[in-house]
Design a protein around this nucleic acid. Structure first.
Length: 242
DNA sequence: GCGACAG
DNA sequence: ATCTTGTCGC
């Protein structure tokens, strides 16, 4: 495992098909998560930040993923890629990664081959804020080797005090006594988002980037762009198959 | 056993 | 996630 081997965008050969296998994979890979690391603060370095998201049509069993690269300084879109495939796993709380990652890896790989290798990936959902401390963001990070953070819209099963009313205010997201992430207010008076470490980025850095990316809206611009793109891609597949 | 439960 | 109209507000 040297850095020269990364990033990788291929699905591991032992990718599970059952819930029991999936849980076992999480228990096994969780040890590979790197909790520390700082990504260069936005506005100070080159590089790009990518957002990934997925949309589903369970009726037709189709999933569409999008990966969008942004200039972290201006938040302008500099690259886009999508991937479409079959739905291979149901939504099970705690096992979201197995539903999303196959398509996300395809989209991220396409983005990389198009000339945009991200220095940071932002995804919907959680990283360490997970029953087994191995949510989507951590899983994606360990598989690709890229720095990844998780920004979710809901607190899942975790508890938190209401953060202060202003942008930048935050409170710990707690699993019992353990801080697994933060409830971060990105807009004055608006419901916070829930940030957690994915891989190779510490929590302070993850929150700093989230706040920067959520300059204009509650959610990071990366997520908004990826969300819009994967919906568009799904709509195109529907049209082509009707 | 029952309910809650990222997307 | 997705199903879905109008509507209040900047």
């Amino acid at each position: 495992m040297t850095s020269a081997d990364f990033p990788r965008y291929d699905l591991p050969p032992d990718w599970p098909t059952t819930e029991a296998e999936a849980t076992a994979v999480q228990e096994r890979l969780r040890a590979a998560v790197v909790t520390a690391g700082e990504v260069a603060p936005p506005g100070e370095g080159a590089g790009t930040v990518a957002g990934v998201d997925v949309a589903y049509d369970d009726e037709r069993g189709v999933v569409a993923a999008a990966a969008v690269a942004l200039d972290p300084r201006t938040l302008a879109v500099v690259g886009e890629a999508t991937a479409v495939g079959p739905v291979t796993f149901p939504y099970v709380p705690g096992l979201l990664a197995f539903r999303e990652i196959p398509a996300v890896l395809d989209a991220l790989g396409a983005l990389d081959r198009a000339g945009h290798r991200p220095d940071l990936v932002v995804c919907d959902g959680y990283g360490l804020a997970h029953p087994r401390r191995f949510g989507l963001a951590s899983h994606l990070g360990v598989l690709t080797g890229l720095p990844v953070i998780g920004v979710a819209k809901n607190p899942f099963t975790f508890r938190h005090a209401d953060p202060g009313p202003h942008r930048g205010d935050w409170s710990p997201l707690l699993d019992g006594e353990e801080e697994v992430g933060r409830a971060l207010r990105t807009r004055d008076g608006v419901k916070p988002v829930f940030v957690s470490v994915g891989h190779r980025v510490d929590l302070d850095s993850a929150c700093a980037h989230t706040l920067h990316l959520a300059r204009d809206y509650r959610q990071p611009e990366t997520t908004r762009r990826a969300d819009a793109l994967c919906r568009r891609a799904l709509a195109e597949v529907r049209a082509a198959r009707s």
